[in-house]
């Protein structure tokens, strides 16, 4: 049986109590995307500032605003920490990895082998997702998967504005 301790790991509660990178960024130069969880009404806004183009741009800063439950808020906080400093392709690969962790197959990402190309996330790293792996327990509570992925889906919307996926 999945216990609450699988869901509410200490590191999740820490990000929930003290969320990182809360706030807003001026738009432009940043882009902004809003995400909704239609089931519960949670709303999240992701501000993304990328330095450079879609292929080699680097995430200079990310800020997160909005309200949500402990899972959506902590996931957003961890997401913001994880993507700052990464290139756009690295971020997209990380999103796919995270969705994999949530047992979600990303249809359009399937088979392009991108996930394996995340620097520092090759086969020899047993914890390629770092803190984010604390969210793995969410999979045992399927209703909450949408909470965990809200910030990530919103990040992808922002990325698509900043640097439309090349499609190839």
């Amino acid at each position: 049986m999945a216990g609450l301790e699988d869901l509410y790991r200490e590191i999740i509660l820490d990000h929930y109590r003290s969320p990182r990178n809360r706030g807003e960024l001026p738009v432009p130069p940043a882009v902004m995307a809003e995400g909704h969880n239609p089931l519960c009404g949670d709303e999240i806004t992701v501000y993304l500032d990328v330095d450079g183009g879609p292929d080699d741009g680097v995430v200079r800063d990310v800020k997160v605003a909005g309200q949500g439950c402990s899972i959506s808020q902590s996931s957003a906080s961890m997401m913001s920490q994880a993507v700052i400093g990464k290139t756009v392709p690295e971020v997209r690969a990380l999103v796919r990895r995270f969705k994999g962790l949530m047992s979600i197959e990303d249809a359009d990402g399937a088979g392009d082998g991108d996930a394996a190309a995340v620097p520092g996330a090759t086969g020899d790293d047993p914890h390629p997702l770092g803190d984010l792996e604390a969210l793995q327990g969410v999979v045992k509570f399927p209703v909450r998967i949408k909470c965990a992925t809200l910030a990530w889906n919103t990040l992808v919307q922002a990325l698509d504005q900043e640097a439309p996926a090349s499609g190839g």
Binding site: G3, L4, C40, G41, D42, S70, I71, R144
Partner: peptide, 27 residues
């Protein structure tokens, strides 16, 4: 957050709804 409330209550088999209850303007 209501989601967390209902999750914790579920541990004790107490079933309550969390969400906007299909009344977003009221919320």
């Amino acid at each position: 957050h209501p989601h967390d409330v209902s999750q914790v209550l579920d541990e004790r088999n107490v079933c309550v709804r969390a969400g906007h209850h299909c009344a977003k303007p009221l919320m």
